[in-house]
């Protein structure tokens, strides 16, 4: 079963095409690591897949309700507790039970603590725990391991493995080795030959 299929996709950022001619397909249980130097369009690709911006060309075949997106920012509210933050997202996505997500990222002891009192790595873990409560099959993750220590990276890899085993799929942009046995795609090869600026520029808005 195909979870996500991209056909001849082109993505633009700031009116400039950064990725062109990308095709890929992820089935249930598949994951793909995106690599590439800074500015090669990893974030733009993930935002396009998540539906935050329209593709400049090509097609995305996926149920828009199937994709869980995680960006550089975790979307946490500092004045809410760890549990309240997660419960909010679980309620919004119509799932219940945050205990498994808390356990997966070793956050159970911090449930009552305000999110603003967490360290950067703990905040990141809470941000990743949000993915588990969305209950969505396709994860589009942008640099999920920033500020995580080796133990937390292992927790994350374990969460991804569990997700894939349940028939999910994941598209992960990262610079570090996660210890997952999945293919790696170098995004830089989809860079357009010459800088094109004919895409509709909305920067003036």
């Amino acid at each position: 079963m195909t979870r996500l299929a991209l056909t001849d996709l082109a993505c633009a950022r700031g009116g400039l095409i950064v990725i062109e001619g990308l095709s890929l397909s992820l089935g249930a249980g598949d994951a793909l690591i995106l690599r590439g130097p800074n500015g090669s369009g990893k974030t733009t690709l993930l935002r396009t897949v998540a539906g935050l911006q329209p593709p400049a060309a090509g097609r995305i075949e996926a149920d828009p309700e199937a994709i869980a997106y995680a960006a550089h920012a975790d979307g946490l509210k500092g004045t809410l507790s760890v549990g309240e933050n997660l419960e909010f997202w679980a309620g919004l996505f119509g799932t219940r039970g945050i205990d498994a997500a808390l356990a997966a990222f070793d956050l159970r002891d911090m449930r009552e603590r305000r999110a603003q009192a967490l360290s950067a790595g703990q905040k990141r873990r809470l941000g990743l725990a949000r993915l588990l409560v969305t209950g969505r099959p396709v994860w589009a993750l942008d640099e999920p391991t920033v500020s995580l220590d080796a133990r937390a990276v292992a927790m994350f890899a374990e969460a991804v493995r569990g997700h894939l085993a349940e028939g999910g799929a994941a598209l992960i942009a990262t610079h570090i080795e996660l210890g997952l046995d999945v293919p790696v795609l170098d995004v830089a090869q989809f860079k357009p030959g010459e800088a094109r600026t004919d895409a509709f520029d909305e920067a003036f808005l």
Binding site: A50, A70, A73, G75, W89
Partner: peptide, 16 residues
């Protein structure tokens, strides 16, 4: 505030 902490983007991809 939602834009600054990234939750606006996450809300935009939520079922709402």
């Amino acid at each position: 505030t939602d834009h600054e902490d990234g939750s606006l983007e996450l809300l935009a991809t939520a079922p709402l």
